[in-house]
Design a protein around this nucleic acid. Sequence first.
DNA 1: CACAATAAGACTAAATTGGTCTAGCTAGAC
DNA 2: GTCTAGCTAGACCAATTTAGTCTTATTGTG
Lengths: 145, 145
Amino acid sequence: MIKVNKKIEYGVLALLYLNSKEDKAASVREMASNCGVPEALLSKVMQTIKNVGYVSAVYGNHGGYKLTKTLEEINLLGITLALDGPIQVADCLKPGNETCPAKQSCTIVDPMNVLNQKIIELFQTTSLQQLSAQKELSVKEVTLS
Amino acid sequence: MIKVNKKIEYGVLALLYLNSKEDKAASVREMASNCGVPEALLSKVMQTIKNVGYVSAVYGNHGGYKLTKTLEEINLLGITLALDGPIQVADCLKPGNETCPAKQSCTIVDPMNVLNQKIIELFQTTSLQQLSAQKELSVKEVTLS
DNA sequence: CACAATAAGACTAAATTGGTCTAGCTAGAC
DNA sequence: GTCTAGCTAGACCAATTTAGTCTTATTGTG
């Protein structure tokens, strides 16, 4: 299944929650209980997000995390890269992969790169601002045909 | 990691190989060895692809599979739906999921639907024809609205 | 009938993901 | 200064998903 993982989901939720606190810090405990996600895991997620500069950490009593960027400045690509590494929709795109089983007939590596690039652009153009849009504004029927 | 799975990769390879045979049938063994993929697994993949009508099976000696559609008529969405089920980029999109941990503050379900829809559209507009394009031709057109 | 091929499902193995545990470090409150 | 809430870090484990195998049937041609 093509899907984003829990860390990304949790990170997005936490960042949106942080945004609602304006420039007050929120502890991982507070975020986790408000967002309903596992505290220990969110702790890891926040550390990683801190390392890419979207939030700063406040140590000690009454500490926590604070947003250092606006929702417009944070996009899904940045979050994904931080929490999940580079986007590679197919294994044969991995750097240094010389074991691709289909060398003779392989016309797929570059096309997969095209798909990869499309997904990267999609993620890049999806800001947290967009993800925080109210439901009335963002609803669109998902119809498979 | 956001990625398509092996079955989809193998299915795409096999269909492109089949296309190169024009309307002759190719056995799973032939396809597997030419594409360098596991035969038993490809067998499953081809059965599934047969069930959605992209290929027909020829039983018995000198049998195999034949393409029944053109590369333009087969897109990545169809292959993905067949081999991997509906596209759901986040667990909270699964039908009947009432255990979403973030009900209070959740502003993400519908935005994830938007992302989901964008990915579906991307897959739908990516035909096998595009994936079979020669490398020189396929690099440019990374048009994303 | 013998053989080559698909059909189908149970089963196993490997990899990834999700989540926990433990121990240490930091800084503010008292 | 010490207590405590909180971040840091890494090892570890469990659950799920994915990849791949094995076995047994069925089908159709020569």
